[in-house]
Design a protein around this nucleic acid. Structure first.
Lengths: 244, 244
DNA sequence: CGGCGCCTTGACTTGCATCAAAAGTAGTGG
DNA sequence: CCACTACTTTTGATGCAAGTCAAGGCGCCG
């Protein structure tokens, strides 16, 4: 379609190829052969970027695709019967979103952009076809689902067994590790979400979140300017994340 | 092997057939054709019952089967790095346990009998083979996995947004509904788990669990004798389970 | 009978929520 | 570019739900 060369490394490009993507090492193509990556690439469509607050999908939407996040950040949200929102996860580039709709053919979460976000859309029926020929892709899929379960269970444990300070320290460490995993700085990154989102996710009020941040700051463990976090003492952050 | 006829309805029998099982309507065979149930039945093995406190599998065990609970009750437990236990679910007859090991080929939860429990073991590689010929079985499997995700997310919401009283009321209603679904009384049942298990599951201390039970009792909402629960006022239990 | 789990009850403490208000930041339009 | 409004974050003061500590009851089994 475009004369733009495939070799671009701009993560917002709508014309990249999976094998060129900076995130190939952590995204869906993990452990695929080059030729399989080509086939995967063919079924992926790259739409326009989402703006902050845009929905990628809404609870109740019919399920026909899963999505890979190329840049930006996404939160997934579950709305309860009584209208409360529960943030169930924050998603960074290289992560796969949307398998939640697989069973019922309907998404039962909503996914919202926290920032301008570039997305790869992967039609699920094509992925299923491809899975038949590429067993490692099928396995990769089960991995993603059960990673979701493991993360949810880790969050249950975090919320029910840890103090406010421990929960926030754990979240910072998780974001740090995931940034590091993407080849970015482990000690210096931007929080893509609001304090309200953090509070909602961790079962705390926004006031408590704020107070804990200033406490961590005063203790010389982190530096905090607006949404920019610098981890000054990762070791101490680790210890404060652990239950006594 | 045995001369015992297949028509037995005793749930502890090691010689039942899926199509005879009282739980056929809610267990794995849901929506299968008779002939498919036969094929499913052939790959299921029914071992001796587990005794209270016996492990069905332990975290770290190699994954080769999923299990259907025929009678009794099972809790699933996740052990964190720092050695704390988190109860992640209670499982009643007709429910499927053990898919958590699918991705890594290793169970990352443990499953413990809360009571004498009869189990059907379903070797996963045989199930996969059968799935190829029986698409509805494959779909059923995805359903089970994503039901697990939905339940975990519901628990996250419950713990992070609801008071102690609301959490316990919600648990009682869940147990009630699941009993009813099995054709048993919705208003009168036995708690298979200890107060400590309930507290662990809901993120509460055992003292709080006990106090809430006596409060619900004093308010005339439930009757409680040891582990025997009678729901006197289901409507009021429902309202106390909801956030204000 | 005595010892050991499990559960209940009471008195006290505390971490976090709530309420309230100010300070900081962003978005909009004249 | 600044003024105006609206949202987000911080900070402080106060109250309460649930945790902690401690003691006693009850059923169970050797």
């Amino acid at each position: 379609m475009s004369a733009q060369p495939f070799s671009t490394h701009c993560s917002h490009s709508q014309h990249a190829h999976c094998s060129d993507c900076r995130l190939a090492g952590i995204c869906l193509p993990i452990s695929l052969e080059i030729s399989d990556i080509d086939r995967l690439n063919e079924i992926i469509s790259r739409g326009r970027p989402l703006q902050k607050r845009d929905y990628l999908y809404r609870s109740g939407d019919p399920f026909h695709s899963v999505f890979a996040l190329r840049s930006g950040a996404i939160k997934t949200v579950k709305v309860t019967e009584d209208g409360l929102e529960q943030v169930t996860g924050f998603h960074l580039p290289g992560e796969i979103i949307g398998i939640d709709g697989l069973a019922t053919n309907t998404h039962n979460n909503s996914a919202v952009a926290l920032d301008t976000s570039a997305i790869c859309e992967i039609p699920f029926h094509r992925l299923e076809e491809l899975s038949v020929r590429v067993p490692s892709l099928q396995r990769r899929f089960f991995q993603i689902m059960s990673k979701e379960i493991a993360e949810d269970q880790a969050l249950i444990t975090l919320i029910s067994k840890n103090s406010a300070e421990e929960r926030i320290a754990a979240l910072l460490l998780s974001l740090s590790a995931r940034n590091h995993n993407r080849g970015l700085s482990a000690d210096n990154f931007t929080l893509p979400m609001s304090r309200a989102d953090i509070g909602n996710y961790l079962g705390l009020t926004i006031e408590t979140v704020s107070r804990i941040f200033t406490r961590l700051h005063k203790n010389g463990i982190i530096l905090l300017d607006k949404k920019q976090v610098t981890i000054l003492d990762a070791a101490r952050l680790k210890t404060t994340s652990q239950a006594p």
